[in-house]
């Protein structure tokens, strides 16, 4: 995406398009990531309730994973999970070329 110059922007940093926060992918801020273990998960939705970024994915009434586009890695989900189904791991483990 090419960034606009000052002449082409609405003044004062006003955003004229409603609900455009979803375009701003804040997942890049993350230094640790939650890793979800489907075998331990009981879909109690405690993580879904507590996630401040709405990053817990749900499908057919069950927890289906984590949306890494927006997850900032705060660790609330891992902390609140009664079954330890979410583990926080350093982001460096998932960088390209590493494991």
């Amino acid at each position: 995406m090419s960034l606009k110059g000052w002449r082409d922007l609405p003044p004062a940093g006003v955003i004229l398009e409603a609900g455009n926060a979803s375009k701003y992918k804040t997942g890049t801020w993350r230094s640790i990531r939650p890793v979800w273990d489907v075998s331990k998960c009981i879909s109690c939705f405690m993580c879904w309730l507590h996630c401040p970024d709405g990053s817990i994915l749900v499908k057919d009434g069950k927890v289906a994973g984590i949306n890494y586009d927006y997850c900032k890695g705060c660790g609330v989900c891992a902390s609140i999970c009664p079954k330890s189904a979410i583990e926080m791991k350093p982001e460096s483990l998932f960088e390209e070329g590493e494991k």
Partner: peptide
Amino acid sequence: NPKTYGALDLFDYYFEHKRQQFE
């Protein structure tokens, strides 16, 4: 016509918005 005032404006756009003020 909903709009947002005071949104976060980091290294990618803050400078352009200041430039508008100078102008």
